[in-house]
Amino acid sequence: MKNLLESLVENNRIHVSEGKVASYIPELSKTNPSDLGICVVGLDGKEYGAGDFEKKFTIQSISKVISLMLALLDNGKRNVFEKVGMEPTGDSFNSIVNLEVKSPDKPFNPMINAGAIATTALIGGDNQEEKSERLLEFTRKITGNPEINYNEQVYLSEKETGNRNRALAYFMKSNGIIDGNVEEILDLYFRQCSIEGNCRDIARIGAMLSNDGVIPWSGERVVSREVSRIVKTIMVTCGMYDASGNFAVHIGIPAKSGVGGGIMASVPRRMGIGVYGPSLDEKGNSIGGAHVLKGLSDELDLSIF
């Protein structure tokens, strides 16, 4: 496996020159566009990595999977999907038109920004500090990494420049989609996007989901099989933004990307995969990471279809 991963990384490094790092969040523009790495975590607990798989990055929208799991644990399926839909969208992840014209009653799904903000608003806690700590502790548990933390510089950069997300949040507040203090909800959302990890960390999340909610290395169940199924299904239909259909056809693995360059993938009952490559395509997905996943899926016949 390690030889295969090393070969895939080296053979696909050429593609990183085809994209660009995210610049609308100033702190993300400082990343090295040539980075590319992958880690695979099997359900037997064995881990294999290649390339820049130990390099830290902020997980950004991969955190939407984490907040969705917490919201489902805290509120149940019915209450969550009263506030946010579960349908894919052909528009960009931060579209305002999508929310205002096509679906003013609730965001299309939890993987676009509006839907993720609505999901984050459902995380339980008596105050902002408790909600933030619960999110962090849950992430530490499902990654098996007690050192996981927020990247303060990226958090502040997102908070300073996140005006599109503010527009989405205040629109949803005016329509009764979200309750509570909008700025506090946004602050928690910006924090969750700034969670910092590496390929191993997100591969472990993918492995837990592939094991139907049970952590492979400890045997502890953290979410129900139903929650795991819901999350993986939404990852298939919505996890790669408006490129989700193309990704499903050509790669066929439940996955969630982030503009920090990460892609977290979960192959049911087989493995979790984490890739990192901050050079992004026009949809906001890691261009080198997608090519590495395509090669791995083809080589090991990982498509679920």
Rank of each mutant, 00 (worst) to 15 (best):
S63I: 03
E10D: 10
S279Y: 08
E27F: 03
S61A: 07
G115C: 08
C238A: 04
L302Q: 03
K2Q: 14
N11K: 11
I230P: 13
A203V: 01
V222K: 08
D301F: 12
E100G: 10
K173D: 05
G42L: 14
S103K: 15
K56L: 15
P107N: 06
R221Q: 12
Q192F: 09
V275G: 03
S92W: 11
G219T: 03
T237E: 10
S67T: 12
C238I: 00
A207Y: 01
V222H: 10
A121P: 02
E18R: 00
E6K: 11
M86N: 14
Q192G: 02
E226W: 14
V40C: 02
I205D: 03
I117H: 06
Q192A: 05
Y155E: 09
F81N: 00
A207G: 01
D105M: 13
A255M: 04
E18N: 05
L209K: 04
G180E: 00
S23Y: 14
K256Q: 13
N149Y: 12
A114R: 00
T139S: 13
M172V: 06
S257F: 09
I253T: 04
K30E: 14
Q128S: 15
L209C: 06
A290T: 15
A207I: 00
S29V: 04
A265T: 02
G76W: 11
G197A: 06
Y48P: 00
F108P: 01
I202N: 08
D91R: 13
W217V: 08
N75C: 09
A116H: 02
R200M: 11
F108M: 13
V249M: 10
S103T: 14
A203M: 01
G277I: 05
V275S: 02
V21P: 07
I96V: 13
K64N: 06
D301Y: 14
A265H: 03
H291P: 03
V227L: 11
N113C: 04
M1L: 15
V9R: 05
P88F: 00
C199G: 03
G125Y: 01
S95D: 04
R270E: 11
D242Y: 09
K64E: 08
A71V: 02
L156A: 12
F171T: 00
V41W: 06
E158D: 11
N3I: 15
A255C: 09
D126Q: 13
N211G: 04
K232A: 04
G124M: 12
N151Q: 09
V21L: 02
Y150K: 14
A207N: 05
Y48T: 10
N94Q: 09
L136I: 07
G197D: 06
E10Y: 10
Y276T: 08
T58H: 07
M1S: 15
L99I: 02
